[in-house]
């Protein structure tokens, strides 16, 4: 479960203080699939960084599975990201020099998992996204859709409870986008908490709950049929 309590993120530029997030309260239950939408500059990226433990709030509390993470040090945040959160980025963010399999293995390596186990898990994750036959290809040898599926496998391999997808279809053609969204919906059906960050209503509608953010505050929070 994710619980944000009065989260603010303030940036000081000279004498001016800018609130990227202003006392945001949000609760996401396990197994939910939600979409956070808003125009650029609305604070949705900041919110994503916060939820993804890439950043810490200036004020407020963030509870991730009952654990207060808003005051943790950088290395502790790394560990939480590694175990609790699977990232899917708009630009895939795969390492170009590594094969698909090695990319998927990477978070498990940082977790300190023994080689045989992490190899098996990574193979399974790639199988799940339908890339069993592309394991030894480098990202440049794969199509955009395939690259994003590798990224999903990487997010999945560590079996984190939360999947955080930032514009996952933003760089894909529509057909690949549909495929990717289908995989993401499947993940949710298998029990993962999925958080989509997007500005595309088409994508947002596939979630069960849509949160609208503007000027650093949540302006609406509604269930979708």
């Amino acid at each position: 479960m994710i619980k944000l309590v009065d989260i603010s993120k303030l940036y000081h530029t000279g004498s001016v203080t800018l609130a990227a997030l202003n006392k945001v309260n949000l609760e996401i239950k396990n197994g939910e699939m939600i979409a956070i939408i808003g125009p650029s500059g609305s604070g949705k990226s900041t919110l994503m960084n916060m939820i993804g433990c890439l950043d810490v709030p200036s004020e407020g509390r963030y509870l991730l599975e009952e654990r207060e993470v808003s005051r943790l040090k950088e290395d502790d945040l790394s560990e939480i990201r590694n175990k609790k959160i699977g990232f899917i980025f708009q630009s895939f963010n795969l390492l170009p020099k590594l094969t698909a399999l090695e990319n998927v293995e990477l978070p498990l390596i940082y977790r300190g998992m023994p080689a045989a186990e992490r190899r098996q898990r990574s193979v399974e994750a790639l199988h799940m996204v339908g890339l069993s036959d592309r394991m030894y290809h480098k990202p440049t040898e794969l199509s955009g859709g395939q690259q994003q599926r590798v990224a999903i496998a990487r997010a999945l391999a560590g079996d984190p409870p939360v999947i955080l997808a930032d514009e996952p279809t933003g760089n894909l053609d529509s057909r690949s986008g549909v495929e990717v969204m289908e995989i993401i919906r499947n993940l949710n059906e298998n029990g993962k908490t999925v958080i989509l960050i997007t500005h595309d209503m088409e994508i947002a509608r596939q979630a069960k709950r849509v949160i609208r953010i503007q000027d650093g505050s949540i302006v609406s929070d509604e269930e979708v049929a």
Binding site: G52, L54, E74, D75, S78, E79, R81, N82, K83, F87, N93, L94, L95, L106, P107, Y110, R111, R154, G158
Partner: peptide, 8 residues
């Protein structure tokens, strides 16, 4: 990228 996926 490495840091985002858990490198310390």
């Amino acid at each position: 990228i490495r840091k985002a996926i858990g490198a310390k």
